[in-house]
Write a protein that binds this DNA or RNA. Sequence first.
DNA 1: ACAAAAGTGTTGTACGTACACCCATGA
DNA 2: TCATGGGTGTACGTACAACACTTTTGT
Lengths: 241, 241
Amino acid sequence: MTTRTEHAASAPLLSATLSATDEIRVAVSTVIFSLRRSSGAERPAVVIPLVRRTRDPHDGQWALPGGWLGGAEGLEAAASRTLAETTGLAPSFLEQLYAFGDVDRSPSRVVSIVYWALVREDVSSDPALENVRWFDATALPELAFDHNQIVDYALWRLRNKVGYSRIAHGLLPGLFTLADLREVYEAILGRRLDPANFRRQVEGSGTLIPTDGFRTGSHRPARLYRYNHDVELAERGPLPR
Amino acid sequence: MTTRTEHAASAPLLSATLSATDEIRVAVSTVIFSLRRSSGAERPAVVIPLVRRTRDPHDGQWALPGGWLGGAEGLEAAASRTLAETTGLAPSFLEQLYAFGDVDRSPSRVVSIVYWALVREDVSSDPALENVRWFDATALPELAFDHNQIVDYALWRLRNKVGYSRIAHGLLPGLFTLADLREVYEAILGRRLDPANFRRQVEGSGTLIPTDGFRTGSHRPARLYRYNHDVELAERGPLPR
DNA sequence: ACAAAAGTGTTGTACGTACACCCATGA
DNA sequence: TCATGGGTGTACGTACAACACTTTTGT
């Protein structure tokens, strides 16, 4: 048995089905989360932008924004490009989700490196773009390729990560009340949280800085906070950058 | 601004540096963890197999086992193949780690999908293979490419995951004592654990089944346990398989 | 008998949850 | 004045760390 470790040459092994690598193409897609408050007095909803396909594999269906990886472009850079082209915004959080490479996930052989991102809700309703629509992440239509599974996984990661990191701040503008922040958690987790306990938890975490401002408008004014940028939104282990 | 979502065609965007995708090749590598008990009365050590490169990029240096992704081969299948070629063993745990795709991580453009795996220590010392050597994971030489960073990240994931899942069982044979299991945790985490508290924690988790066997030899005999295969080694969210 | 590991019991602290209660504002 | 959300106080239960203690073997 031969040991194959070379990254610069490949010798056929046992089976002829291990064909040349040139047939494999690399794509980068991104699951972009934002928040949309329905015009009424509703709770905010987690939304993601999808793009309608205009070509043959799954023509007409909705798909995640993405594109081919450029030859002089890193993975994260490709995801950022995707994101800018779709939303026109800079993400407050961007992380690799997973690499999908099943043989039958596309008619041709495609390995998709999928990222997920958060964008603040400020201007995310900036629809100067054709063929882009924002969907409620919990009520998606049938998407192209395996993109439904991918979004499910991204949602799972989001809900998971919100429990042990401070990424929820990445969905809010610079100034916000504790009720705003709690609503983000509630929208992501899908359940109500106790306001009193939530306050103490997040106040004790050292990630919030109280300001002198208050939000007035209804009932007792609520203090405005801003995010403490000394702490990272999420730890990523010993990964580059 | 044009929105690009097509997975089947790529139109050049703004810059000519986004060249054709055919130059990009996809490799799969695997960080394989096992345990090695030094012959003396030592604590077990976390070890990984490395392969000496015999070709030009980083010729002679040690590198992670891996190879080119086959055209008819899924990502996980490619990692399994790698693993079998290196150790001759079936993994007790196999999970995708990360996709590395920086432009300058190799002289040619290579995107590496990296997996990490656990193999039980039974036969992992089966060195019928050339150019393969097992190294203490905490004392590695300088490796080829960015493989030192990759191993660091895999070690971080291992230490992390051992805290909230039962993957430690994946490093032990079918029957083991609580002291065996505790030693695995101690080897991975690098610190001693209280035997009394450890016992209660793991007994209460429902993942262990006590057998009638005991291990004798020194002092009071210890009960042998086996793993409860009804529970998964680790939850993976809504991922396929 | 003694050393050492196997195994049990007890206690204190930290933290999350539930919920009662007061405060400040708009209407 | 009342309704409502902002904000504080408190009691309970679980989880975990620390550590004293008993049990069972080999030597």
